[in-house]
Design a protein around this nucleic acid. Structure first.
Length: 115
DNA sequence: CTCGTGACTCCCC
DNA sequence: AGGGGAGCCACGA
């Protein structure tokens, strides 16, 4: 029935989006943990590449909850403003200082353990 | 088809 | 401490 092309919902990007949508409020995860959960521990760059396109995807993807392995907001320049990503996190109760998430490990959400 | 690039991460020197 | 290389894989030129 389904052709190869109809399997687009299994694409790496789509699987990334599905995981990101499951990150709870006030929690964050990393590019590497998402990649690892999807079976490609070395493909963190792909997760970032997927986030680059996340703004024109539905349902919405809370891309601000994805940071690098040190809890740094490396993707903040893709939110259309210097403080947009940071403000979104703050509005969920997360403290950000100099692009670093305070108490990062306390807010870290690991899909491999949670899902 | 090949090449360069990237919101990453790990390893080695 | 910090810089370079490699693996990852989608995408556009």
């Amino acid at each position: 029935m389904k052709s190869e092309k109809d399997l687009h919902h299994n694409d790496f990007f789509e699987r990334v989006y599905q995981v990101v949508r499951l990150i709870p409020e006030s929690r964050v995860t990393t590019y590497g943990l998402i990649a690892a959960y999807l079976g490609s521990p070395q493909a963190g760059r792909m997760v970032g590449w997927a986030m680059n396109n996340a703004h024109n995807v539905q349902p919405p993807v809370p891309a601000h909850r994805v940071v690098n392995r040190n809890g740094v907001l490396t993707g903040k320049h893709h939110f259309g403003g210097e403080h947009v990503m940071e403000d979104l996190l703050r509005s969920e109760g997360i403290t950000v200082v100099n692009d670093n998430i305070v108490d990062f490990k306390k807010h870290l959400w690991n899909p491999r353990e949670a899902l």
